[in-house]
Simulated scan of single mutants.
Amino acid sequence: MTLQRTPVTEPSPLPRQPGEPALSTLGLAAPSPDPADTSPHAFPDGGTWRVEIPSVEGPEALGVVLKESARLDVPIHRISQGSGVWMLSDAEITEMVETAAERDIELCLFTGPRGTWDTGASVRTDSHGAGLRARGRDAVAGCVEDAVRATELGVKCLLVADEGVLWTLHRARSAGIIPGGTTLKVSALIGPVNPASYAVYERLGADSLNVPSDLTPAHLTEIRRVSAAPMDLYVEAPDDLGGYVRMYEIGELIRRGAPLYLKFGLAKAPGIYPYGAHLRDITLDTARERVRRGRLALDLLARHGADTGMSPLGSRLPGDLNRFPEGS
């Protein structure tokens, strides 16, 4: 496999590690980072990280996020939604597309049926069966229907939770069924946990991949040795993804995992999928708080001298990636 690399144009200085120099004074200095662990990759614009606000479930939530991001000066590259295209009307999608475009922010909507909302009993068992994957051809068809509808309304990024759906939509954009510039994002709920599977998702058509938030920095280095595909990582994960809060690791996560989307979920918050008006207050409150978590993370990066390397606002493309031949 030929690995495409977009090198960082100017190496960023190593960030100050949490607790330093106080711990060094006390004889508890951290070991120096190994330069070999630093990711050799970047986004095509030369940046090493971007910001994503997830779980933005409709036009009203999007408005709240944008208002709060302006108030707190939180830069945003991507907004993503979790309930699915099917939970939004054409008018709502169009409004979200236009609002995001005004701010030059990528809008990403989730596609189609998922096993957890299906009639299959296996996902209710302790093993969770096939999880979120699309069960049967009809479920794949629903995802494709969502993709065609969303892209016709101007959506440029689609979130998927099934390998077969990913490959199908990759082939669809190659065939012109959906626009060639559409980006495909892999959900954290099926995110790869090793370098071999990460590389397979890239070759199936993924343009960015959520990885579970419990991967260690060493795991990120292993992935970066085989793939340059952008990575999405919850710095704070919702409870159903573990509830991890990794604020103090952000500098190291960027160093090892670049190119990296920093995602700000929210622990200790109720689930809101699939969203409806009955969940309005909690959805708007949590959307607002996710932006505030982003501000806290950016402040921490600045204190540690790790806030350089952000992609220019408006950047969305992943760069050259490796794909399986489509005739295979």
Rank of each mutant, 00 (worst) to 15 (best):
L184A: 10
V186G: 00
V186E: 00
S187R: 12
L189V: 15
G191S: 14
P192A: 14
P192V: 08
P192L: 07
V193M: 08
V193N: 09
V193P: 10
N194F: 10
N194L: 10
N194V: 07
A196F: 15
A196W: 15
S197F: 15
Y198R: 00
Y198A: 02
V200I: 15
V200E: 08
R203F: 02
G205E: 04
G205N: 01
A206C: 11
D207N: 14
D207L: 02
D207K: 05
S208I: 09
L209K: 04
V211L: 03
P212D: 06
S213K: 00
D214G: 06
D214C: 00
L215I: 13
P217Y: 10
A218S: 12
H219S: 14
T221N: 05
T221M: 02
E222Y: 00
E222H: 00
I223Q: 10
R224C: 05
V226C: 07
S227A: 08
A228S: 15
A228T: 08
A229W: 01
A229C: 15
P230G: 09
P230Y: 09
P230N: 10
L233S: 03
Y234K: 02
V235T: 03
A237N: 05
P238N: 09
D239K: 13
D239V: 08
L241T: 06
L241R: 10
G242P: 09
G243S: 04
G243V: 06
G243A: 07
Y244Q: 12
V245L: 11
R246F: 01
M247E: 13
M247L: 15
Y248I: 13
Y248V: 12
I250S: 00
I250Y: 02
L253E: 01
L253T: 01
L253D: 04
R255N: 12
R255M: 09
R256S: 01
R256L: 03
R256Q: 06
R256G: 04
G257A: 08
A258I: 04
A258D: 01
P259I: 02
L260A: 06
L262K: 10
F264V: 06
F264W: 11
F264E: 01
G265F: 02
G265P: 00
L266Y: 07
A267K: 05
K268T: 08
A269R: 13
A269E: 11
P270W: 03
G271M: 05
Y273I: 14
P274A: 11
P274F: 14
P274M: 10
Y275N: 13
Y275T: 12
Y275R: 03
Y275L: 12
G276L: 07
G276S: 14
A277P: 12
A277I: 11
A277V: 14
R280S: 13
R280I: 06
R280D: 14
D281A: 14
I282G: 04
L284H: 06
A287Y: 03
A287C: 13
R288K: 14
E289I: 12
R290E: 02
R290N: 00
R290A: 00
V291I: 09
R293Q: 14
R293D: 07
R293E: 08
G294L: 04
G294A: 09
L298R: 07
L298P: 07
D299R: 05
L301C: 04
L301F: 15
